[in-house]
């Protein structure tokens, strides 16, 4: 009994720790994202390549936002279990969502600092910093968003 507990114990402790702390970190992040997104709601964001007709002709520039987020131990474990039977890896979906929203928010915040009213031609890309580490059951997402910040002659509709 004891040897078994000693073998499984640390693993279970890690899982529980990751589940509680990781869950807390994720909820806090989503809350923070919502608050920042609500402040940026008046910005026009589009992936269209053309400028809206009311775009001001003042020089505009490239804005970017990047973020690297690590998965927690519990998420990775849940995903590893899931990939045995196949199907949707929900634990990683929220991770990707967090990364994408964070990158977008950072991009919009830097656009706002330039005095822009919106960002045109938004693109998302991912990078691979810890590519080999990923195979060792520890995922991380490296996301960046970029686009062209523009000013508008008048307030854009919508």
């Amino acid at each position: 009994m004891w040897p078994f507990l000693l073998q499984v114990g640390p693993f279970v402790i890690l899982l529980v720790l990751a589940l509680t702390v990781g869950g807390f970190v994720e909820r806090a992040h989503f809350k923070r994202l919502e608050r920042r997104e609500s402040q940026l709601r008046d910005m026009l964001v589009t992936d269209l390549r053309t400028f809206p007709p009311n775009t001001a002709s003042s020089p505009c520039g490239l804005v970017t936002g990047e973020v690297v987020i690590a998965s927690d131990y519990f998420k990775s474990f849940a995903a590893a279990l899931r990939s045995m039977v196949g199907g949707e890896l929900r634990s990683f979906e929220t991770l990707m969502e967090r990364a994408r929203r964070e990158a977008l928010v950072r991009m919009l915040e830097s656009a706002r600092r330039l005095g822009a009213g919106g960002v045109i031609n938004v693109r998302f890309a991912t990078s691979n910093i810890g590519s080999q580490r990923r195979k060792r059951n520890a995922a991380m997402v490296e996301m960046y968003a970029y686009g062209t910040a523009v000013r508008f002659k008048e307030q854009p509709r919508g």
Partner: peptide, 26 residues
């Protein structure tokens, strides 16, 4: 970063790396 993989969250060191790289490439 390896430790951060336990509880999740942002890897600010790697974010910095990404920002620096992007800036230098540009």
């Amino acid at each position: 970063a390896g430790l951060k993989n336990l509880v999740g969250g942002e890897l600010s060191g790697y974010t910095e790396l990404l920002i620096e790289s992007r800036r230098q490439a540009l």
